[in-house]
């Protein structure tokens, strides 16, 4: 059979697609199948199983460093270990290419070390938590009561609900007054301390 796309090469891949509920059937050569993305010429992906191909490849990689570790997961004696957090065993991880839960990182610790060595080029220690985190929290802190009221006020004004707006405005006034009192009190205390 000739490829439906290039009309040149021998087709050996059958592609069934469902676009807008209409099922279509194509025959493609490997070259055209490779080139075919989801967004070209109306070809769609078939539903993919829950898995991660790269992860899968890694879980199935024969780790050299592991063969001489009798306690590692890949060896026979350890294959039946199940993670207490999610009940997954090594075979499950191989199938999906994904860990089941955060606890897997403890359960399969040795395996993970070898695996991460492969992926991350020997860097198996996480270096820092997020850099300069403290600066950032400031910028994104949750809205204070007053800020919330202010945005509500703007909303009401936009909607021309002036009566409700007036109520909110008064609330803001009260809160601001209370806050100013507090700051004044604080600065007074500080003054005394000095």
């Amino acid at each position: 059979m000739i490829c439906d796309k290039c009309h040149k090469n021998e087709a050996n891949i059958s592609v069934k697609t469902m676009v807008n509920g209409i099922a279509e059937n194509y025959y493609l050569c490997p070259e055209c199948a490779r080139k075919q993305g989801l967004f070209q010429s109306g070809f769609g992906f078939e539903k993919l199983p829950v898995s991660n191909f790269l992860g899968q490849a890694l879980f199935n990689f024969p780790f050299a460093s592991m063969s001489n570790q009798p306690t590692s997961i890949g060896t026979k004696s350890n294959k039946s270990v199940r993670c207490p957090g999610c009940g997954q065993d090594f075979a499950d991880l191989r199938k999906t290419g994904l860990f089941g839960c955060p606890e897997c990182y403890t359960t399969f610790h040795d395996l993970i070390r070898s695996m991460l060595d492969q992926i991350h080029g020997g860097h198996i220690h996480h270096v820092t938590q997020i850099a300069s985190a403290d600066v950032v929290i400031e910028e994104m802190k949750p809205l204070t009561e007053i800020e919330k009221l202010r945005s509500e006020l703007q909303e009401k004004i936009k909607l021309e609900q002036y009566e409700e707006a007036a109520l909110i405005r008064d609330k803001i006034k009260d809160l601001t007054a209370a806050e100013t009192d507090e700051t004044t009190n604080n600065s007074e205390t500080e003054g005394e301390a000095e």
Binding site: N52, L54, G55, L58, G97, L98, F99, P102, Y105, I112, M115, L116, I119, I124, H125, H126, V127, Q129, I130, A133, V136, I137, M140, K141, P142
Partner: peptide, 22 residues
């Protein structure tokens, strides 16, 4: 970072932020 201040994020001393895929 902001989400980390309001949610309990999984973080491991050795491996850092843990994820489903290695």
């Amino acid at each position: 970072v902001a989400l980390e201040s309001v949610l309990e994020i999984v973080y491991d001393q050795e491996f850092g932020y843990l994820a489903a895929c290695p």
